[in-house]
């Protein structure tokens, strides 16, 4: 049975906090370990912060992922912002156009088990992650 998506709007910085609370709640519901929960919540924080920083507004969707006897959560964060011109470059360490550490995207990839990113300049960015407990 596929689980329903829980979707939240990302409009302001305050929504980062809401997304984190929501993902922790879901992690608790699916019995995710505390280590995996911390990693997932941090990944979500990174991605949602990116939306507020670069795109202004977007959407986050989350749902329990299904795999035999292993709880997990799938998350999609998308926006229609300026997009990333060079994804390969953005996935490198210490590359940032926002004046910050430049570890967000590569770090996020290491924190989760699955990581896909699609981005077209001028069209927006869509990141899909899955974390298994």
């Amino acid at each position: 049975m596929t689980q329903r998506w829980r979707r939240l709007r990302i409009l302001s910085q305050g929504d980062v906090a809401l997304a984190i609370l929501e993902i922790r709640e879901m992690a608790k519901r699916v019995n995710m370990s505390s280590g995996a929960t911390a990693a997932l919540a941090t990944a979500v924080s990174e991605l949602v912060t990116n939306v507020t920083k670069y795109a202004d507004r977007g959407l986050i969707s989350m749902r329990p992922a299904v795999q035999i006897r292993r709880p997990g959560i799938e998350v999609i964060v998308e926006d229609r912002g300026p997009g990333i011109p060079d994804i390969e470059l953005a996935m490198k360490e210490n590359v940032s156009t926002g004046g910050t550490l430049g570890l967000g995207l590569p770090g996020t990839r290491r924190l989760v088990d699955e990581f896909d990113i699609e981005s077209q300049p001028g069209q927006g960015t869509r990141v899909r992650i899955i974390k298994w407990s």
């Binding site: 919540a41 924080s45 990174e46």
Partner: peptide
């Protein structure tokens, strides 16, 4: 709750 790159920074 969460220490991400922004908080660490």
């Amino acid at each position: 709750a969460v220490v991400d790159t922004a908080v660490a920074n």
